[in-house]
Design a protein around this nucleic acid. Structure first.
Lengths: 213, 213
DNA sequence: GAAAAATTTTGACAAGTGTCAAGCTTTTCT
DNA sequence: AGAAAAGCTTGACACTTGTCAAAATTTTTC
């Protein structure tokens, strides 16, 4: 009973064009989602942020979930390699620290709206199973990204890692999320504050010390 | 041009009854929100979780925002004093640690649905200014709660505090949030994992050590 | 117990939602 | 150039949403 649509055909020539449009519409969806949030984003609103009308969305996507899933995947692709240059360039502990903190600050300033969308969708995942797999995958990618940086820190100090990848990611993510809320609420000191906090926490984490008896 | 409604009268006798109904309906709202999430919670759905019909909501609340705000405040009242018994009872570092970790685990098991609502609404705050003040206040209360525990840790070790209240809260919140997502996704090890992570992080944080040069 | 006030239900409204099918326009193929 | 396919628009559908007013009911007051 499966209806045959454009989505099932695999014309190798046309596939590019089709995928291109999908990406274009997914981009419009990202734009809309980051502006309005998940709860208030409608297909018509998304279409208005593109150069097409709302009907076209069902030509390129099975349904709303399919569209949003595609958007999230597209967001991910841009997101995960963002900090790797920082790791590669740093030659000293302080170099790496400064570079990492600067990258965090720049992300906060330039991509605040995209990141609030990320947190919004991740919260949706607490209720809806639909996005769960994709969100978990993206979350893992971010964790890996942070872990690469922490490994570089460990190399530069000579100390071994003692905190697990997922834990250190969760902590930095928590600090970032807190900063995002303050930043969007108009707190001009939010970014500086976060930088100081992250610096201190990393210094604590990367130094070995016996836990108290 | 302000319309006179029941909300403006201050019959000192009746005020209790009125507030009681409000609380009752706010409770139904909490129930619904924690089950469906913010995006899919409607007034009719809330009414169905109460013993009234949907129309009554506009008798007791100005609008939907008023109702949800009231719910959040009600949620807060129960939430913030939850861990204070742990602090009071503990006589040793290990006591306090065990008690705190047990309280975290119990919260995760018993109140997972309520806490996903909390994260959902906090994410809404990234887009909407309506809840911002209340969310910030509740967030601060939770921060204070965590800080009281950390102060007790500091007392028991004799070491001074070095990480700011907001930073330590953000980190533990991050760990809790990560655990919540795993827990709701069916990961049976999520709680144990969180306990181990929190234990390690607190031990790192509460021990003094010079940051690397 | 009747009048007045408070409470609750009912039903409607205008607006917005995801979805889809029919038709129009453009591109592609032979 | 003509036929066929792909791309896109339009308009409708069934349904849900927040809001509100009028009526029905219960409670209080005198």
């Amino acid at each position: 009973m499966q209806k045959v649509t454009r989505l099932d055909r695999i014309s190798p020539q046309r596939a590019d064009k089709f995928a291109e449009r999908r990406a274009e519409l997914a981009e419009a969806a990202l734009q809309t989602l980051s502006e309005l949030g998940y709860a208030r984003t409608s297909l018509r609103e998304i279409a208005q942020n593109s150069e097409f009308t709302h009907g076209v969305l069902h030509y390129y996507f099975r349904d709303k979930v399919d569209l949003i899933l595609c958007s999230v995947r597209q967001y991910k692709a841009r997101c995960v390699t963002r900090y790797d240059r920082v790791t590669a360039d740093a030659r000293t502990y302080e170099d790496l620290m400064t570079g990492f903190l600067a990258a965090l600050a720049q992300t906060m300033r330039d991509e605040a709206h995209m990141h609030r969308l990320w947190y919004d969708i991740r919260s949706q995942t607490l209720f809806e199973t639909a996005f769960r797999a994709d969100v978990a995958e993206l979350d893992k990618s971010l964790e890996d990204m942070i872990w690469r940086i922490m490994c570089r820190f460990a190399e530069l100090t000579g100390e071994p890692q003692s905190v697990s990848p997922s834990a250190i990611y969760a902590m930095i993510d928590g600090l970032f999320q807190q900063c995002l809320l303050r930043h969007l609420s108009g707190d001009s000191q939010a970014i500086d504050q976060m930088q100081a906090d992250v610096r201190l926490v990393i210094s604590k984490i990367t130094s070995s010390s016996a836990p108290p008896a």
